[in-house]
């Protein structure tokens, strides 16, 4: 049902890797390492500044993919992949957008399952890719039926 959405993308949205947001996120995943929040530790590090945890891109705004209609409830996060060219730096600006990469269906013991693959990308101000965060979302038969009525 999402085959015709493959390749659709959102317009890029400017995001900032905010110091307070990184600190709060590191606390929420129980990572006490000062590289994420202590300015002195950041300055003394090879990066010369603070960095953000690898799963931090969950926080960014990736804009809206026109025409992509996702059910409000019942989605299952099946898989998640991150790729980095380098760590994220606290304070930097990133231009983020989402793209529908794939959609396929598979028969399972729970009926016909839909797999929607969405890539969330972040680029630096010069347009170089910094990270890609790819989610595979599972949409089961009950959720699909509820949507089509």
């Amino acid at each position: 049902m999402y085959q015709h959405d493959i390749g659709k993308r959102s317009a890029k949205v400017k995001n900032v890797v905010e110091r307070g947001a990184v600190k709060k996120f590191a606390e929420a995943i129980g990572d006490p390492n000062p590289i994420y929040w202590d300015e002195e530790t950041g300055k003394r590090s090879r990066y010369g500044r603070n960095i953000a945890p690898p799963t931090f891109p969950r926080v960014f705004d990736y804009g809206v993919i026109e025409g992509l209609k996702l059910p409000a409830k019942g989605l299952i996060h099946g898989e998640q992949r991150f790729h980095y060219e380098r760590p994220l730096f606290v304070g930097e600006e990133l231009y983020c957008y989402a793209e529908v990469k794939d959609y396929y269906e598979k028969q399972s013991s729970m009926g016909l399952l839909g797999f929607l693959v969405i890539a969330n990308n972040g680029e630096d101000p010069d347009g170089n890719l910094v990270f890609t965060s790819t989610s595979t979302i599972i949409i089961n038969e009950a959720v699909r039926k509820a949507m089509s009525v």
Partner: peptide
């Protein structure tokens, strides 16, 4: 997943 990644933080 976020918790799991912290195993690597000390090696930044």
């Amino acid at each position: 997943m976020g918790n799991l990644a912290k195993l690597f933080t000390p090696y930044y």
